[in-house]
Design a protein around this nucleic acid. Structure first.
Lengths: 209, 209, 209, 209
DNA sequence: AATGAATGAGCATTCATTCAT
DNA sequence: TATGAATGAATGCTCATTCAT
């Protein structure tokens, strides 16, 4: 009996927003932030230039809305890995596989996120940069928790867990670069499997001595 | 007593070129490609804007001249590692240490090079991109040679050497990122030492089974 | 008990119109024509942006509706002064006092009107500009009638009455400017009293010689 | 024998700057600040749009450069009047005449300055607004000095000199408006003569009683 | 009748590059 | 040879106005 009238406009709005986001994602991930113009995004989305500014108040905001979405998915993954049941190695294996799947599923997001990392951060407002850094720190913290567990379990070497987290993250990110630059030659899925199987093999050895 | 002035203007010319390159390196590595203007480079170098164009025909060319210089140093390092005497592990250890030293010595170059990696390559002229890719491929090839030697020697796991090269390169590049983003918290030298020591420990095990 | 709703929507309509006008007056007089947006006016009035266009067909029209209202009040005052009983000096004294009271009562209107005077009239549609000029001319005509009376009565100098009207108007407008720019330092009421008392003192002398 | 080479470029630069200023003056005084575009100014001056920014760093700065030039001329006039030899009445007469001549000579400047007065000051950076106010205050201060002298000499009524200054300034500014709005019907020269002759007539009377 | 999402012309400003001197 | 003044294409963003709902 109660009308849902107030809600009815949202689907349309959401659709539009999605169209813009898709267009922006495509362009930003292909051409990068600087070379993508708002006019192009609007054109690609099939709307007027001004309409973009109804949804985001600036190019920067649009960009970071996408970047953050991408980051959040990964943060979420790491968090879930840290909180799941199982040994550290199991967690890492799960995380590795899920990460790869995420990247394959959302290649554009990965590219975008990646470009942002090397982007001239000086370009952006400090608030956004700050948020990015916090995100990164959070990822490392969660990773560190898993690693600390692994060291306790004796499957990971008894080294500085922060450094191990950075190195692990670095390894994965470094592989991502290779993959993004030449996806034909370097299959990220296969690479991750190799890493995990090597890791498993190595984990058996006595670290402590 | 007689001046060689009429003979060679190169000394002067080289000085200027160096001044420009230094200025450009500083600015590009600090502010990134897009946020650095030719006017700033000229100002920083202490010469006229127009003069820049006597040495490089465009901003792009100036940028890539620097990037390439940086790359060449690394390519050179990898090549020398591949050609030196010793076991694969020794070569990798040497390469790792030298790489780190290179980065510390030329932090600006590293930063520049790194920014360029994720930079909107698609937006640069294909000729430059092509050259970058070729450079990268060369690095991987040399790395692969070392790795193949290691597999033969039994100190590296008997896996696809191209993938191992990519992974190794990825690891180092990934660590570089961590270092560049927070040099206080992540000491690249220490990290490299950890990697090498872990590698050495692990290398002893029987891979083949 | 029976609602008159079906009969007249005007009460509602008028309310809205008043709300819009009030909002517009406040904003235009504070921020000026160019810096005030239709969106702000609508927001301030508490109605939708589109609704504004039901009452006025353009920003310009809204603006001039207000300006004209303000002008009309003054025209009305001058007209009443010209038509009242009494000597020219009495009329001018009454007009001077009433004008000041009007300005104090409707400071926003005065400000608005004043801004419009120097506003880039050339940029408004000719129809509006024409109307403004006609208004001004009317004011001068009425003023001139009073002045002619004064000259006949011998209390005003026997000079070109049109010029005297312009000068009188100029004096008052000039004082308005001083007042608007710094109402603390320049009290318009006090100033007008000074003018009138000086005028009275001076009026006694023999003009004709 | 010494070359004046270093100076030789200035004439050219100055020429260019003059051309821009002339174009800007014409447009600003005709169409006002908001409706004049930088592109128009450049076009009118016969140069490229970007060149404007070589001489002034913003539209605002260009505008105030002109406004200030205009103001300075008038400030200078008032200052010279205050400092010349003679009675207050002589000073005011001289000032009145010179002011009128200035306006006739530089009608565009007068228009510009005038428009600026009513312009939405909120539009401009506080530094400029501040400067304008200071200018105005200075004018009133000098005027006040002359008036104080006149009161002492008994030729001006013994009233608050600040108010008299404001009123005098108001009168002249008010007349300027009349003139600018309809120069055919209201001849500023004639009007000023009338004011001065009336003033002279009136000045003879005994103010004090 | 009322709305607010959509539009796109319009504008200030930047900057790589050119070229007269 | 070296310069810096000149250029104009390019771009992010605003806002009066329209119109589907």
């Amino acid at each position: 009996m109660a009308k849902t009238l107030g809600l009815r406009k949202n689907p349309l709005k959401d659709e539009r927003e999605q169209a813009f986001k898709q267009a922006a994602l495509k362009l930003f991930s292909t051409k990068g932030y600087h070379k993508t113009t708002m006019a192009e995004v609007a054109l690609e989305a099939g709307f007027g230039k001004g309409t973009l500014y109804w949804y985001w108040k600036s190019k920067e905001e649009l960009y970071f809305a996408l970047v953050e979405e991408s980051h959040n998915e990964f943060v979420d993954l790491v968090r879930r890995a840290a909180e799941m049941e199982g040994t550290a190695l199991e967690k890492l294996a799960w995380l590795g596989k899920e990460t790869v799947e995420l990247h394959y599923r959302e290649r554009d997001y990965t590219k975008l996120s990646w470009k942002m990392r090397a982007e001239e951060l000086e370009t952006f407002s400090p608030e956004y940069v700050e948020r990015m850094h916090e995100n990164n720190a959070e990822i490392k913290r969660e990773l560190q928790r898993i690693i600390e567990q692994g060291i306790e379990e004796g499957t990971l070497p008894p080294a500085d867990p922060y450094y191990l987290a950075c190195m692990l993250l670095g390894l994965v990110e470094g592989m991502e670069i290779q993959w993004l630059e030449d996806p034909e030659a370097f299959d990220l899925r296969k690479a991750m499997e190799m890493v995990l199987s090597l890791g498993a093999k190595v984990a058996g050895q006595r670290w402590s001595d």
